[in-house]
Amino acid sequence: MAKRIILLIILLVIGDIYFYQAVSTLTVVPGMAFLYWAIDLGLIFALSSIALVPAFRARAKDYLPWLISALMLSLIPKLLASPILLGEDIVRLLTGFAYRNIYVSEAALLIAVGTFLIMIFGLTRGKYHYKVRRETLYFPNLPTAFDGFTITQLSDIHSGSLKNKRRVQQGVDLANAQESDLILFTGDLVNNTAEEMKPWSSTFGELRASYGKYSVLGNHDYGDYVRWESQQAKSYNLQQLEEVHHEIGFQLLRNRSMNIHKGNASISLVGVENWGKGGFQQYGDLNRATENVDKAAFKILMSHDPSHWTEQVIDHPQDVQLTLSGHTHGMQFGLDLPFLRWSPIQYFYKQWAGLYQQDGKYLYVNRGFGFHGLQGRIGIWPEITVLTLKKAKVSTSV
């Protein structure tokens, strides 16, 4: 963590020095320079303390999310505005012009202010700005009885980060308003401990679906990011979390499967424990989870980490038609427009948000209901996914 913090400090200093050129061009107000540097020097001091002083680092988890948010508010507007200043500097270098153009500095400042305001929205209201995203998926081997069957997927609630009961209730009400046949939750109910769900059990217990509610665990649910006094304490926490799933009406699938029946037909619902690459836990056992599943059955897999899909699911002997994941949050930061999707998370995860298809198999990556780390969502809004399963017509033409 210390190396990453040092890198952030370097970026902050470079961004500050460069962007200050625009600020100094536009104003000579006494004290402006002091105010400008005092804010960022405070951030640099706080970050340096965490990186270099073990005592601060041990307590950093209590305030680090807010420090990250403040850092992004300071750094990102400057970084986005700096290319304008860089372009001007290139022109000045080629033409030998010594002074900055005040209009260029104004343009850079307007971009920075606009970005800052958008980020303020994301850090305040954006984290509860729930969006329903719909997809209709066609499968040739879907049982006819399930033609038109609907699934609401939720993921990454991260109850330890939630604060606003009224807004969270609106998200739960919006999920219920979809009136889906099935509700599936794909992991990370908490940040670290089962205790975090106490204020929220009654709220999420209101989720309703006619064919039931099912869930799996995510990487945060195991308590692996907490220093426990003993292994027994950690195991007890996980046991408590299992009980929470039961209390709110979810059937937790830990490397096992079950059938969803509709009339005389059925589909197989498979749930694995967390399996992720890049240093994440690999508790998931797809072989074990599918050992009692008919190979010809239509299968829906819940697996928290989308990297599991490419690493194991696609080429698995059991033909899994649909996989549902979460985990990435879309990094809670980026552009998520119909004509442009970008987030820094895409450099770490090939499948990071929305629908993907390969070899006739689908993966849907939910952007998450809650938030963690960054105390908000900027451009990547919290998601309620509604999937409609349709039976594809098989062509009989030669």
Rank of each mutant, 00 (worst) to 15 (best):
M1I: 14
A2Q: 15
L7G: 10
T27Y: 11
V29G: 00
L35H: 00
Y36F: 15
L41K: 01
S48V: 05
F56P: 03
A58Y: 07
A60Q: 07
W66D: 04
L71A: 14
P77Q: 02
L80E: 04
L94F: 10
L94A: 13
F97Q: 11
F97G: 12
N101V: 08
Y103P: 03
A107I: 10
L110Y: 13
L110H: 04
M119A: 12
I120P: 04
G126D: 00
H129F: 14
L142W: 12
L154P: 03
S159E: 05
G160K: 06
R167W: 11
V168M: 12
G171M: 02
L174C: 00
A177L: 06
S180N: 11
I183Y: 13
F185C: 06
G187W: 00
G187Y: 03
M197R: 04
P199H: 14
Y211V: 08
G212K: 14
Y214V: 02
G223T: 04
R227H: 13
N237L: 01
Q239T: 09
L241Q: 07
E242R: 15
H245K: 03
I260E: 01
L269A: 05
N274W: 02
G276K: 08
G276D: 01
G278C: 03
Q281K: 13
K295S: 15
A296W: 04
T323M: 09
T323R: 08
M331A: 15
L337T: 11
L337C: 05
L340S: 02
R341Q: 15
Y347Q: 05
Q351F: 00
L355I: 12
G360A: 04
N366H: 12
F369R: 07
G370Q: 01
Q375A: 14
V386Q: 15
A392P: 03
